[in-house]
Design a protein around this nucleic acid. Structure first.
Length: 445
RNA sequence: GCCCUCAUCGUCUAGCGGCUAGGACGGGGCCCUCUCAAGGCCCAAACAGGGGUUCGAUUCCCCUUGAGGGCGCCA
């Protein structure tokens, strides 16, 4: 299929500030952004705030924050300006009146019951969609373009602004496909050339029927931000929901620059995709383990700081750093960090009763712990290797295995049966904490 | 009800007339191992159904079914 190509490319993302910013919107924004960057075109942000009863300034900021967090920078729009502004529809009323006059002059608009209606042509509307190919639909009845309260309606302002802003490609969700016949009627009535349309598949909720909506679990971008997800991971995941590098290229985790290079409209899938939080979590983990340690620590610090009761409050920087270095290769996500590292920062950790019961079911763990305490009191805590050889020597001397000391030792100093290498654990906790905790465990039984 | 779109493992997908139908997530097993992860190896798992076209259909066409969307003085 050959696309009507026009250059330079101008695309826009046009959200309305009527609710939290959700995953589907994020992906629409992303695909527009990708296409603009791929073609060297212009990415416009336009705020469609014509419904005064549902708009809010708070939601407007959510849009800006979410786009910025995702790294989707806009070339024209609120905050950065541009030659075709203003970029909020609430500030473009004069323009809409002007275009309405054009329609009236052409005999394509009339008033009825206080509202203004658009007179359709009734001709079959044909669109050459860059993703779906040729789609035909006939609009069957006149529709409202100005409400009786005097405010213009979405279909009208959307088209007027696309014309006025010189938008060349309209990349949006498939839920707009059936509306497109209204839009092409309007473009033609306005004497404007049609943009290239590209209707991307929808994201379906992972459980139950229907498309994902703002009310579904995991639907809000803000939620991932709050939960410490890496934006680059979410972006990568979203790119793969409906697009892939194709041609036998099985890569999934890809640098954004690489995706920008490969992205193109005809490669976008035509079928809807079900959201899969497990796959997202995995992508996030891939980015997490690959993160430079200093950046991981930075992220972790910010996450802990945002907690109402951070277990790491008041902890020295260096110690926090050492702990997080141990945790990075172990956790699946930032949000499990506070629970995973709690015993490093607080002495009042709970003891896992199941683990204790299992350990006490056989052997004499308390005797082993006593021996371990003696061995550690004189051990070198400088390196993991030194600690390991100390415990190794003890085990050899008693004719036992490393495990006979490690498990009870771990339970005594951390209260849990899982965690980083026992020797790393000892080294980072330091002799004082280790000895105190072991003694306490020995005393309490 | 009318109109539009879509249809490969549970999920995301590769495939664009001839493949043991590939990868990833998730699931299961084995190995490694101081625990938990990670890692290595392996297993189960799909072309919705029916007609055509063709020497040959997962692939092209039609129908059915299923899934999704639209039919607002919401966007």
């Amino acid at each position: 299929m050959s696309l009507p190509t026009r250059s330079p490319v101008r695309v826009r993302f046009a959200p309305s500030p009527t609710g939290f910013f959700h995953i589907g919107s994020a992906r629409t924004a992303l695909f527009n952004w990708l296409y603009a960057r791929h073609t060297g075109g212009t990415f416009i942000l336009r705020i469609e705030d014509t419904d005064q009863t549902r708009n809010s300034e708070a939601f407007l900021n959510v849009i800006y924050d979410s786009l910025k967090w995702l790294g989707l920078d806009w070339d024209e729009g609120p905050g950065v300006g541009g030659p075709r502004g203003p970029y909020r529809q609430s500030e473009r009323s004069a323009l809409y009146r002007e275009y309405l006059e054009k329609l009236k002059a052409a005999g394509r608009a009339y008033e009825k019951e206080g509202a203004v209606f658009f007179r359709i042509s009734g001709e079959p509307q044909v669109i050459e969609d860059a993703i779906r190919g040729r789609v035909e639909r006939t609009e069957e009845k006149d529709f409202v373009i100005f409400r009786s309260d005097g405010n213009p309606v979405f279909h009208f302002v959307n088209v007027v602004d696309d014309v006025a802003m010189g938008v060349t490609h309209v990349i949006r969700g498939e839920d707009h496909l059936s509306n497109t016949s209204k839009h092409t009627e309007l473009f033609k009535a306005l004497g404007a050339p049609l943009p290239v349309y590209a209707h991307i598949p929808l994201i379906l909720k992972q459980n139950g029927p229907g498309k994902m909506s703002k009310r579904d679990q995991g639907a809000l971008v803000e939620e991932y931000q709050r939960r410490g997800f890496l934006p680059e991971a979410l972006v990568n995941f979203l790119c793969l929901l409906g697009w892939n590098p194709g041609a036998g290229d099985n890569r999934e985790k890809m640098p954004l620059a690489e995706i920008v290079k490969l992205f193109d409209l005809p490669a976008v899938n035509q079928s809807n995709a079900r959201f899969d939080e497990k796959k997202l979590a995995h992508m996030n983990w891939e980015y997490l383990v690959a993160l430079a340690p200093e950046r991981f620590i930075e992220k972790a610090r910010a996450y802990f700081a945002a907690q109402p009761e951070s277990p790491a409050a008041g902890v020295p920087e260096d110690y926090f750093r050492e702990v997080l270095l141990l945790a990075q290769p172990k956790v699946k996500s930032i949000e499990e960090l506070p629970a995973y590292t709690r015993y490093f920062f607080r002495d009042d950790f709970p003891v896992d009763e199941k683990a204790r019961a299992k350990l006490f079911a056989k052997g004499e763990p308390m005797a082993r712990l006593g021996e371990l305490a003696v061995a550690l009191s004189g051990a070198d805590f400088a390196t993991d290797a030194a600690l390991e050889s100390a415990v190794q020597a003890l085990a050899a001397e008693r004719g036992l295995g490393l495990a006979d000391y490690v498990h009870i030792g771990r339970l005594a100093v951390s209260g849990t049966s899982v965690g980083p290498s026992f020797f790393s654990l000892l080294r980072v906790l330091g002799r004082d904490r280790v000895m105190t905790r072991i003694q306490r465990f020995l005393a309490k039984g």
